[in-house]
Design a protein around this nucleic acid. Sequence first.
DNA 1: GTCTATAAATGGATAGAC
DNA 2: GTCTATCCATTTATAGAC
Lengths: 205, 205
Amino acid sequence: MKNENSNTKQKIQQTALDLFSKRGYSAVSIRDIGKIVGVKESTIYYHFKNKQDIFQTLLFEVQEITSQMTLLFNNQFEKTISVEETAFIKVGLGVLEGFLLDKHIIKFIRMLMIEQHVNEEAALLYQNILFDTPLKQNEKVFQLMMDKGYFKQDDAMRLAVEYYGFIYFIFQRYFSSKEVTAQAKEIAKNELSVLIKRFYKMYSK
Amino acid sequence: MKNENSNTKQKIQQTALDLFSKRGYSAVSIRDIGKIVGVKESTIYYHFKNKQDIFQTLLFEVQEITSQMTLLFNNQFEKTISVEETAFIKVGLGVLEGFLLDKHIIKFIRMLMIEQHVNEEAALLYQNILFDTPLKQNEKVFQLMMDKGYFKQDDAMRLAVEYYGFIYFIFQRYFSSKEVTAQAKEIAKNELSVLIKRFYKMYSK
DNA sequence: GTCTATAAATGGATAGAC
DNA sequence: GTCTATCCATTTATAGAC
């Protein structure tokens, strides 16, 4: 294929993400990636400067995803906030299912989970995508809920930690290394529902 | 050194744990370990069958630690349970500081955190040491607290998930890759105190 | 844009001397 | 129990043909 707009580069990136998230950066060789994509190593070096360059490109993609999420959230959150318990639970389950367990995003998360111990930049991104950003977003939500009188006055950030803490814990417990099956999802969602329900009963007016 | 009871084997094990927990198994070479211990590769092969054998020995050590913790817990927990809020908080902080953040144990945890994605046995041990065992132990505690009338009647396992979920979340947030400094410990302990206090107020009689 | 060929380094592992 | 020497496989990376 002598196509300048070939999607080989994209395929390499995708495959690298897939393998890095399963085995970790250092256990994946350029040949491994090439074999799956169906090209020789030298082709990979045509598209990327070196192995680290592939990784850096993926880290850049994480940053973009995080920014997009924040933007989307900021533009939409006032509209979607609801007072009702069922809707409130749905939002929490949505974070788990629509974000953390998204087929693409979970690969980034797992890659960062492994590489945070080796790579400073990965550590910062992990902190950002899994703690700082969601906590800040939840803080905003709870502050708004209080301002609108739906929730009792309290420390919004504390509520955020408590609420998002549940989601993170369930996510780690059921999916830190296990496959995301429909069955596991059901168990996790049920468990999370119980926790969110209690939370809602406690803090809503 | 022609000492049959030399501690070289122990040093190799310790160094391997240290490096595996920082870089992950596949990024550590036998030569890396040898350099730090101060012996040649061949010496390492005298003490261990191969690289995987070192890892397996460490996994075995994790199992032993977990069993010991459970035994210790079962023998002692009735005596140490207290009704008072301050004592209750102290126990929770103790789990964080005395177990999860223990200099030796945190290395095992980090190693498992990385290798769970690659190694099935590591995944099981991670689940066991970080979820199943502590949740079961906490369930026992809360059941006892209820039976003694200190806590309101409720689902003990649900309380365990809620309570231990906080501890796990704080642990991951502040120490998943960061160094365990006195400062970070203070922040984490303060944050956890707030969460446990609320928990206590909610469920104690 | 992709291939073949190959350089150069590194890693796991073993044989045999001391 | 530890060392030197060595083997062989794998890996990153590059040069140059097509």
